[in-house]
Design a protein around this nucleic acid. Structure first.
Lengths: 194, 194
DNA sequence: AAAGAGCGTAGACAAATGTCTACGAATGTT
DNA sequence: AACATTCGTAGACATTTGTCTACGCTCTTT
């Protein structure tokens, strides 16, 4: 389990981890197996653990007044999943997180994250790089959501995240893109004809 | 000019600045007066300076293939304005930034930012808090853009940023919200009737 | 005062997207 | 094998949003 994370860390810092660092990581990451359809977080609860996805597929979403689900984030292997706002501020989350496939996770608490950030440079490095990337990705998603049609948004999504496009069911992707599942179906049909 | 920024910093760190710190800030921030309709950044250029707005109102936007402007960010007193991706990566920006009113700015270069981050704890503190906040604000904006109608988006916007709502012309706000200016006009009309 | 630019509003129409219902294929469950 | 569930597709229709044109108001500039 932990090897997946050690390997992942090498993407951010080429320097090999010391044994002490590995021990710290193993101490602070708790392996967890989340079964399909099981919740990792329920809206109203505080997000006390951030998940590193070793294997599987997850989503984070809200449910609005009309009972409609809106997918806010998707994640598969090597992605992180959690409600950052709730995690950092210890505030109740507005989001649900659940598994769309059986998942192998490594759970990290806030204290764990803080300790690793202090004592494991590679982790700190990872965090700051991810923060930057995340910020840019969100920004791009926002721009495209504001200025593009449904068809363009879907095309961009497939180009940008091909792994996600065939991993998640279509209605989930539609929700992620902020469009109706029927609309997405239509868009794909018209797209194929050209 | 600098006093505005010193005062602003106190929101992030109560500890008063030392004279050395003040000197460092004054060394790295360049005052600049940007007149109405003047550009601070043109798409294609590298964003070499980040602006702290002492006074005035600015916007950042793209122009798409059809020549339509899409406002990505708005800013007034005590806000920052710049294309972070371009600024950090020294990559050409896709955005324009200009002034909607006469502006008094404090310009900061990347080197300046790095020096301040190293040597002025209050600045570093400010940056990390702003990063967090910015991330959350973007996330909220994204969620609302994906899951809300035009009317709801406008209502949320007014609640969240009343200062912006009456400071910027309506067609700019419409663009910021990702809706047509005519649609926003309609939405407001219907809103007032209820 | 005159002319022009910027801005908000309005209405008619077009296009995009949402809603609803139904169906069939694939999959999982018993 | 029988059954229920999930998922994608399709078409008819409603609603929302965009497009275009026109008008009037305000402000600036001349």
């Amino acid at each position: 389990m932990y090897d997946a994370y050690f390997k992942y860390l090498r993407n951010f810092s080429p320097k090999p981890l010391t044994d002490d660092e590995k021990a710290l990581i193993m101490k602070n990451f708790t392996p967890f197996r989340l079964r399909k359809r099981q919740y990792s977080l329920q809206a109203g609860d505080i997000c006390k653990k951030f998940a590193f996805i070793v294997k599987g597929a997850m989503r984070m979403y809200t449910i609005d007044d009309k009972g409609i689900e809106h997918v806010v984030r998707l994640g598969i292997e090597d992605w992180w999943m959690g409600d950052r706002e709730s995690f950092v501020n210890l505030s109740p989350s507005r989001y649900h997180i659940d598994a769309l496939e059986h998942c192998d996770l490594l759970y990290l608490t806030l204290e764990g994250a803080n300790e690793l950030q202090e004592k494991v440079p590679a982790f700190c490095q990872m965090k700051s790089i991810l923060d930057e990337r995340n910020q840019m990705a969100n920004h791009r998603r926002l721009t495209s959501s504001i200025s593009s049609t449904a068809k363009m948004r879907y095309t961009e999504f497939v180009e940008c995240y091909p792994e996600l496009a065939d991993r998640f069911p279509q209605h989930i992707i539609a929700s992620y893109l902020g469009i109706n599942k029927d609309t997405l179906s239509r868009v794909k049909r018209q797209h194929n004809l050209k």
